[in-house]
Design a protein around this nucleic acid. Structure first.
Length: 623
DNA sequence: ATAGGGTTAG
C-alpha cells in the first residue's frame, strides 16, 4: 500500500480507474475512513466517479453507519446517471439496511427497474438482522416467484430467521434444501447452522455440524460456546473455551462474554474475575462486555465490584442500566434499585425488562407503595403493556406483604390469562399469611395448570395440608404421578480456593463425606441448644418425623456449607450457589450457622441472594 | 478494468 500510495501521489495525471484502484484497495483492507477521504479528494479535484467508485463509497458509509454522507453520495450518483445501476442500487439498499432503515430500503427496492440476486439478498438479510423475520421470509417468497433461486448467502439470511423465530422445522428444511441442491457449505453457512441449532436447544446437532466443519474460525467456536452458555450448560461452555484455546485460537470478546454468562450461572467468581482481567489486558471493555461483567459480579455475590464497573461505563444503554438495577434487586436493595431507576429514566428509555427488575426489587424489599406507584406509571406514562412477568411481580409484591385481597383483585383485572407464576405468587403469599381460603383457591388454579416443577407441588400440598384438606393433598400426588414429575435434583456449588465443588442432595459420594457429616452433627447439636427446631413441613413425603429431619440436614446447601467451613480459613466469606430456592428450614439453620461459626455465608438461590451474618439474613426473612 | 449481499455476545 505504501508504494502504491507513493506512486499514486507522484502521478501527473490520474484518471477515474486510477482513483478507483486506490479506493478499492482501501476498501479491501477494511479502511472505510480512507475510502471516503480519497473519494472526497477525488471530487474536489474534479475527477468524475463512476459506478464502482460510488459502490465502494456507499459500502464504506454502510460500515460506518454514516447515513448522511451516504445520501450525499446517492444524489451525486443519480446526477451522474447511475440511478438504475444495480451495483449502486444494492450498495444503497445495504446502507439503509445497516442503518436500520428497512422501510426506506424497501421503497428503493420496489422502485428498482432491475434487481439481481445481491439486491434480494440484501433485503432478506436486512430484515432478518433487524428482527423482522416474517418480512425476510416474505421477500424470499417474492424472489422465488420471480424465478430466482437462492444461493448460500441467501440461506445464511434464512437460517438467521430460523434462529430468531425458534423455528427448527424450517431450519432443518433449509439445511436439507442446501444438501439436495448441493449449495456450497462454507464457514459462514455452517456457523449459522451451529448457531441456529444451538439457540433452539438442539446442542447435539449443533455440535455434530460443528465437528464436521472442515475448518472453524473464532466465530464458529463462539457460536457453539454461546449456545451452551445460553442453554444453561455452563460446564460444557467453559470446557469448549479451553478446547478452543488448545486448538490454537485466541478467544474473542464474544466467546468471553459467553464464558462470563456461564460463570454467572454457576457462581464461578474466580474464573469470572480472571476473564475480566484478560479482557482488560488483551481486548477492550465495551458496553456489552461491561454489562456481562457487571452481571457476573453481581450473580457471583460481589455487588460492589459490579457497581464500580457500572460507574466507569461512559455510554450506558437500557440493557446496562437494567443489569445494574437487577443486581440491586437480587441482593435485596430495593431502595438503591429505585434510586438508580430514577437516575436512569432521564438518560435511557426504560423497557419491559427494566420494570420487571424494578418491581421484583421493590417486592423483595417490601416497598409496596412504591411498587403500586411505578406499576401504574409503567402503564400510563411509559405505555408498556404489563406482561405476565410484571403481573407476577406485582402479585408477589402485594401478597408477600399480606395484601392478599388486593393481589387477588389485580389478578381479576388482568387482560391476559393468569398463568402459573401469577398463581404461585398469590399462593405463597397465602401460605405465609395463613390465608387458607384464598390459598386453596389459588392452589386449585395452580394444580389445574399442571406445572412441572416439584417445588410448586410442595407449596400446593403444604397449603392444602394446612387447611386440612387431605383429599386435595392426595390429588396433588395424583397429578404429580400422572405427569411423572420428578424432583429436580437440588444441588449447591461452593467455591473453595478458586475451585468449584458441587453437592447433590443427600450426596454421599464426596471424599470428605464422613467429615462433612460429623461437622453437620456438631452444628446441629449447637443449633438445638440455641433453640432451633427443624421445620419438617418443607419435606413432601409420608415419613416419620425423624427421617424428615434427617432429610433436611442433607439438603445440598448444608453439605456445601459444611464442606466450605472445613476447607477455608476461619472468617473467610463462604459463597454458595444453588439451583432451587432455599427452603425455610435451611434458611433458619444457616442463620444459626453464621453465628456459631462466625462466618459470613452468602447463598444465591434461584431467585435472589441471602447474606447470612451474625445469626441474621440480609433478606430480613422477607423472601 | 475494478465494484455490491453472509457467521458469534450483554
Amino acid at each position: 500500500m505504501c508504494s502504491a500510495l507513493q506512486l499514486f501521489d507522484e502521478m501527473p495525471q490520474r484518471m477515474t480507474p486510477t482513483w478507483n484502484a486506490m479506493i478499492i484497495a482501501y476498501s479491501r483492507r477494511h479502511s472505510p475512513m480512507k475510502v471516503l477521504s480519497l473519494y472526497r479528494q477525488m471530487i474536489i479535484e474534479g475527477v468524475r466517479p463512476d459506478s464502482s467508485t460510488f459502490t465502494v463509497a456507499l459500502k464504506a458509509c454502510a460500515s460506518l453507519f454514516d447515513l448522511e454522507f451516504g445520501e450525499e453520495i446517492r444524489s451525486l450518483a443519480v446526477n451522474c446517471g447511475y440511478k438504475d445501476d444495480v451495483f449502486v442500487g444494492s450498495s444503497l439498499l445495504n446502507l439503509y439496511a445497516k442503518c436500520g432503515k428497512m422501510d426506506e430500503a424497501m421503497r428503493v427496492f420496489d422502485s428498482m427497474p432491475k434487481r439481481d440476486l445481491v439486491c434480494w439478498t440484501t433485503m432478506i438479510t436486512g430484515f432478518s438482522q433487524c428482527g423482522r423475520a416474517a418480512e425476510a421470509v416474505g421477500v424470499y417468497w417474492r424472489m422465488k416467484d420471480e424465478g430466482l433461486e437462492g444461493d448460500s448467502i441467501v440461506m445464511v439470511g434464512l437460517i438467521q430467521v430460523c434462529a430468531i423465530l425458534g423455528d427448527v422445522k424450517m431450519g432443518l428444511s433449509i439445511h436439507g434444501h442446501m444438501i439436495r441442491r448441493d449449495l456450497r457449505m462454507d464457514v459462514f453457512v455452517e456457523t449459522s447452522l451451529v448457531d441456529m441449532y444451538a439457540k433452539n436447544g438442539l446442542l447435539e446437532i449443533a455440535r455434530h455440524v460443528f465437528k464436521k466443519m472442515s475448518w472453524r474460525n473464532v466465530v464458529s467456536w463462539s457460536a457453539l460456546i454461546s449456545g451452551y452458555a445460553q442453554n444453561g450448560f455452563a460446564g460444557d461452555a467453559l470446557r469448549l473455551l479451553v478446547e478452543m484455546q488448545d486448538s490454537g485460537l485466541e478467544p474473542d470478546l464474544v466467546a468471553l462474554v459467553s464464558a462470563l454468562l456461564a460463570c454467572s450461572h454457576i457462581g464461578f467468581l474466580k474464573l469470572g474475575e480472571s476473564i475480566h482481567g484478560f479482557i482488560m489486558r488483551r481486548l477492550e471493555i465495551n458496553r456489552i462486555s461491561a454489562t456481562a461483567i457487571i452481571d457476573m459480579y453481581s450473580k457471583c455475590g460481589n455487588l460492589s465490584s459490579a457497581r464500580a464497573l457500572f460507574d466507569r461505563i461512559t455510554s450506558r444503554d437500557t440493557i446496562s442500566w437494567n443489569a445494574m438495577i437487577a443486581s440491586y434487586g437480587i441482593h435485596g436493595h430495593g431502595r438503591e434499585a429505585l434510586s438508580l431507576f430514577i437516575q436512569m429514566k432521564s438518560q435511557s428509555r426504560p423497557d419491559d425488562a427494566t420494570f420487571a427488575s424494578l418491581l421484583s426489587a421493590l417486592s423483595h424489599s417490601g416497598l409496596v407503595e412504591e411498587g403500586r406507584y411505578w406499576f401504574d406509571l409503567m402503564v400510563k406514562e411509559f405505555r408498556i403493556q404489563p406482561s405476565e412477568k410484571h403481573y407476577a411481580c406485582m402479585v408477589d409484591l402485594l401478597a408477600r406483604a399480606g395484601h392478599i385481597k388486593e393481589a387477588q383483585k389485580l389478578i381479576e383485572s388482568m387482560t391476559i390469562e393468569p398463568g402459573i407464576p401469577v398463581w404461585v405468587a398469590l399462593l405463597s403469599g397465602c401460605r405465609n399469611h395463613r390465608k387458607l381460603e384464598i390459598g386453596e383457591m389459588a392452589a386449585k388454579k395452580v394444580l389445574e395448570l399442571k406445572p412441572d416443577d416439584a417445588g410448586i407441588y410442595t407449596l400446593v400440598s403444604n397449603v392444602f395440608a394446612a387447611a386440612r384438606k387431605w383429599d386435595e393433598v392426595a390429588s396433588v400426588r395424583k397429578v404429580m404421578k400422572e405427569k411423572g414429575i420428578k424432583k429436580v435434583p437440588g444441588y449447591s456449588v461452593a467455591e473453595v480456593n478458586g475451585n468449584l465443588h458441587a453437592f447433590l442432595m443427600e450426596d454421599k459420594s464426596h471424599p470428605q463425606h464422613e467429615m462433612i457429616m460429623a461437622m453437620l452433627e456438631r452444628l446441629n447439636s449447637k443449633m438445638r441448644d440455641m433453640g432451633y427446631v427443624p421445620k419438617t413441613e418443607f419435606v413432601l413425603h409420608d415419613l416419620e418425623e425423624e427421617v424428615k429431619e434427617q432429610m433436611l440436614c442433607n439438603h445440598s446447601e448444608r453439605l456445601a456449607i459444611a464442606f466450605a467451613l472445613l476447607n477455608t480459613a476461619p472468617r473467610t466469606r463462604i459463597l454458595i450457589t444453588k439451583n432451587l430456592r432455599v427452603c425455610g428450614d435451611c434458611h433458619t439453620a444457616t442463620k444459626f450457622v453464621s453465628e456459631i461459626a462466625d462466618r459470613e455465608i452468602v447463598v444465591r438461590d434461584v431467585k435472589r441472594f441471602h447474606h447470612f451474618k451474625d445469626g441474621a439474613c440480609s433478606c430480613g426473612d422477607y423472601w
